[in-house]
Design a binder for these strands. Structure first.
Lengths: 236, 236
DNA sequence: AAGTGGTCTAGACCACTTG
DNA sequence: AAGTGGTCTAGACCACTTG
């Protein structure tokens, strides 16, 4: 049997996600208890518990001993750091944006990538490489791995016309994202693409994006440190 | 019995943290397996497993089926969404923090600084320079200009004992902050302080902080890009 | 072949909240 | 008093890595 079995706790998680996504369970709805889920899905209480626990860690549910498990309040995290379309950002600065599509292919996943995207190692993953320009200067290299199950028609797009962010927003709306920001030296190929010296420090953002159905993409955004910065405004 | 019992998995987690913190288990060291820990602590395998699992989620360990559990490569990470005390961040990673106070003086303000701090050019401004260490490696240089009117006793502090963030939080609680993040090459003095090559890219955060009474400080935080990163987790 | 982590079971006792 | 989540046990089978 080449088929990889889906874990039982995953099936329960998916079911709960679907109920929330479809709107059947709204904010503060009571979610079935561990015992009830265990019986419904014919699993042990520990397995039902794991599903609830993981969704709680992901922020979809809140739990209270004695009281029960409930659908969490959606935080519209007041755009402290929002994920914006780079084309919009550039236009808002009053500048011209254009993009070159350097790659758009299907690739095999390695172990790490499989874990980050939440796919099996046997699956294919789509990969795009887009270079963004601000007033004809290269400003950001966007390398993106995309979950082929969630976005099956990714390879048919033209990312000189529409940014991957725009396309993905329409196909699998963002529900969650993580960013990791580092200062790095780019490899020689990236330096050529960005038209910078090899000694120029770059800001690199590794961003994972989720829709309600799971991890949509892993984007690696590289920008010359002397032309690009990130900002945030926080209030308490 | 008023005593609250410490959970067994917490005891195991604490033990592992201590071994990492003390340096007995360095990066990539093999950590005892679930079975070994279960026997050592006289608990079931599931309980030992939980300790390893939670530390893995916290990023202290990495696990590989069939191969074992290992101490993770440590790359310090700060959140972009909250302003935290660096000493707390380091302790939460199970590491040791200490600090050197390199400067603590009164300085004249130049034009730009006066505008950023919202003070008149005739006023004095306090300046501190503190080098933060994680497990005896320099991890961040904190240069901070402080509004002398709002925090008159800043110069009387000892920032080897208490971080500027802690002191300022008690004197003039944060109500607002802005961050600007860049990738830069540090100047030669900073490179010496951080013990890095001049070609090492650094993450630099320029942070202005407000209390209810106005701008409290401008902090310039510089960290080696290969040891430090920023992170954020957004939900929509 | 032996050891490792991943999943799962069918129980147990407990602290806590609710009607 | 009944239901809920929190912790824990002593087993089981499996997929995977290593010597």
């Amino acid at each position: 049997m080449a088929q990889v079995k889906t874990a039982k706790f995953t099936i329960i998680k998916d079911h709960i996600c679907k109920m929330i996504e479809s709107g059947e369970w709204v904010q503060h709805s009571k979610v079935p208890s561990e015992n009830v889920l265990a019986e419904q899905f014919s699993v042990s209480r520990m397995t039902a518990r794991r599903a609830l626990q993981e969704l709680t860690e992901q922020g979809l549910l809140v739990r209270s001993q004695g009281a029960g498990t409930f659908v969490a309040t959606f935080k519209s995290q007041s755009s402290l750091l929002e994920i914006r379309n780079i084309a919009d950002e550039i236009h808002d600065r009053g500048h011209q944006h254009h993009a070159l599509q350097l790659e758009l292919i299907s690739v095999d996943v390695n172990n790490e990538l499989a874990i980050l995207l939440g796919v099996k190692e046997s699956e294919k993953v789509y990969y795009s490489e887009v270079l963004h320009f601000e007033n004809n200067e290269p400003i950001q290299l966007e390398q993106r791995y995309v979950n082929s199950t969630l976005v099956p028609e990714y390879l048919q797009q033209n990312f000189a016309q529409i940014t991957p962010h725009e396309y993905l927003s329409s196909e699998a709306p963002l529900t969650e994202a993580t960013n990791e920001v580092e200062a790095i030296l780019a490899n020689s190929e990236t330096c050529l693409q960005l038209n910078i010296e090899s000694s120029t420090p770059c800001l690199q953002v590794k961003r994972r994006t989720w829709s309600s159905k799971g991890v949509v993409s892993l984007a690696i955004l590289t920008a010359p440190g002397n032309k690009y910065r990130l900002g945030s405004h926080l209030t308490f």
